[in-house]
Amino acid sequence: MTHTGLETQSLTLAYRDRTVIRDLTLRIPDRCVTSILGPNGCGKSTLLKALARLIPPNGGQVRLAGEELSRIDTRALARRLAILPQSPKGPEGITVADLVRRGRTPWRGFLAPWSDEDARVCQLALEQVGLGDMAGRSIDELSGGQRQRAWIALVLAQDTPYLLLDEPTTWLDLSHQLEVLSLLQKRNRDHGTTVVTVLHDLNLAARFSDHLILLGPAGLVSEGTPDDVMTESNLQSAFGLKALVVPDPVTGRPMVVPH
């Protein structure tokens, strides 16, 4: 029963004595955009960190292509799976190009020479986030949206089939949120990259995701397509929220309107 994708089996995650995820088994569908949703403190980010091996499971396991994550060599994993933590911080005054360059770390050898391939992938990443002409600018001078795109370019330059992002739209205004999510969606459509994000905005998640994972205070509430997951009863049990779910007039995807 080997699978090709990223999956958890009976995964339990805890901080000291507080268990945030208990006995969770789920599969992240390959080549899809998946969003993890849920109220504050339900363990969304914790789950994402465990999927990227930033925190070890307290029970159960995370597997990538059937192999337990903890058994995969660190560098080999970094060539398959990239993660952008929440609100990353770079050295003061670093330029966009120099920041993105660091995304190539897992691909560089012992002496770490810089190859044409490295340069090509970095350039592509910059263009995909729309910062091709800003490579020489310092990230301190960029707007919030541009800065977040520069960080995304860094993980794109890592050139992995799996891309995990922890709240990539936090602190951005609506148009920049759309910008970030559409570029991730485009990367998914063009390269078949499996994208997993933690998001707060339910409507944006429904709009841009192929697959949703909805967590509540008591663990997994529902997973599946946006239409399956975004139901009034699911929202009630995850958020304790009374809401109307109507089709989004633009995309036809489910849209949440709280009472």
């Binding site: 930033l54 933590p85 002496l111």
Partner: peptide, 23 residues
């Protein structure tokens, strides 16, 4: 000099550094 590229990754914070395949 050998560790320099990994130190550069570390300067991005330890979570990102681990994501980039360094310890």
């Amino acid at each position: 000099l050998l560790a320099a590229p990994r130190i550069e990754a570390l300067a991005l914070g330890s979570a990102l550094a681990r994501g980039l395949g360094t310890r």
